[in-house]
Each structure stands twice: as C-alpha cells, then as structure tokens.
Amino acid sequence: MTHDAQPTLSKSPWNHVKLWDGLPAGTEIQSIEFPRDAAEGDTVLLRFPGPNPRVAVIAPPVNNTAPVVARERFTLLWIPVEFSEDSNLIGKVREWIDGPEPPIPPESRLLTLQGAKIVWAPGRAAVIVPRERVSYVRPAVIEFAFYDAELRMIEREIADGWPALETDSPMAFDFNEKSLRRRSELGQRFQRVVSLRARLSQILPMIHRPPIHPPTLASQIGDRLRERGRLVERLDFASSQLEVFERVYELCGQRASDFSQAHKGHVLEMIIIVLLLGQTLLLLVEMLAARGT
C-alpha cells in the first residue's frame, strides 16, 4: 500500500476533522449534490430516473464557515487500497466519520463485502475498496446515499410537523369562526403533507426493488446498505406517520369547507334577521311615538 498522497482538504465540507497522514494514493473526498438538472460543467456521477428525476453531481467546494453537516450534500471519502491494508485504517475512518464530538452510540455503521469496506453515517461515508472495484461500488453507494437522504428529509419534515399537528388536531373535530382565520395555514400544511406523500411514493419503487439475479458486487452492496440503513422499515414508519397527518388535515379541510359553506348561509340569514329586527324596531318606535303624542 502506498502512502504518498494527501487528499485536497479544502474541497471537503467535512474538513473540520483533519485527515490523517499516510493515506493511500488516490484518496479523494467528493461532495455530492442531487439537483434536478446538472449545470454546465458539472461532473455527473449518476442519474436517477422517475417522476422526479435527479442527478448526482460533484458539488463545488464549500468554505470552512459552511454548516458542519451540509444537509443537501453527501460527503464521500474514497480510499482505494491494495489487497494488503493498514489495520488501523478502519478505526481512523470511523473516527473521521463520527466527527470531533461523536454521538453516543456512534452513528457510523461498518459494512464489509467482498473486500470493500464502507463506513457510513447520515450525510457522509468512507469507502475503502480495492482500486479495480471502485467503479462498481461507486454507483451503489451514491444511489443509497440519495435515497437515504430523501428519506431522511421526509422523516425530518414529519418530525418538524408534530407540534403543529398537536395544535391543529382539535380543528379536525370542531371548527369555528376563529379557526376560519387559520384556514389558509391549514391548507398549506395539507399541501405539504401531500407533497411529502408524493415524494415518499416516488422513492418507494426503488427501495422495494427486488434483488438482481445473479447478484453483482454493486447490487449486493446496494441491498446490504438498504438493509443496514433500514430503508424499508423507515419507509413504512414514515408512511404510517404520514397517514396520521393526512387523516387530521383531511378532516380539518372537510370541517373547514363545511363550516365555510354553512357560515355563508348563516351570515345571510343573520343579516336578514337584523334587517327584520330593524324594521320591527322602526315600527315599535312609530307605535310608541303615536302613543306618546
């Protein structure tokens, strides 16, 4: 194994942790983004077809003031190795992945398959792989990173929506004039839920994809990563949670619509009653005036 090259640190959003000396030649840090379309000059690593197509491109460098975890980006550390390898490498890679203040328990997961070692955590991964297999492993890791990031984003938005759901849930049962002021807000939340459901549905076929036969290294890595990342279970959980949101906001919408329609009718009725009362009072005044004189 050769230890004669250093990766370019300035290109990494993960450079708050210094890479260590003695990494193999060809070690590379890639910051990957998943825009809808590649811009001119972007290096396209992978394309994701479907109703909401995306591409994986190498992101431009970020400076040191960027957030520690760039949520829209995925940081990938490629370490191509020979068959003999440094026994301390995995430990150092995990330390790099977990960052200076690692959570307890550590977020990083180690996956070993046919000589490829992948240390993965949300938003970043390090791949230690024999040089000749890099081209096979890369698409599988990037594909998993994309779907994991999508699912994480959906999970995060669902988690952020719970407090609002707690506040809004009474309106699923009882809607009144004060609630009417929040109708557009409820509408926006319902649209958000529908959008999340759509995004979930879009990644569903890829996550539930049947295993390829005969298996390849890339397909096996993809399957194992999906399994270790518990994508299928997380997808089910997210779907179940979204159902609760859908149920509440559908009921809110129904109540709002019913109330709004009834309200318009009631207002007209009340105005008619007010006019009739006015007429009655006018007659009363006339009658009293006649008696008074």
Binding site: E177, H263, H266, V267, M270, I271, V274, L275, G278
Partner: peptide, 12 residues
C-alpha cells in the same frame, strides 16, 4: 356573531 353581521348592525 360573525364580524360581518356586527358591521351590518352598525350600518343599519
């Protein structure tokens, strides 16, 4: 009462 009805009362 809905605000619009109260405003109607004022006008009336």
């Amino acid at each position: 009462l809905p605000a619009i009805v109260s405003v109607s009362i004022c006008v009336m």
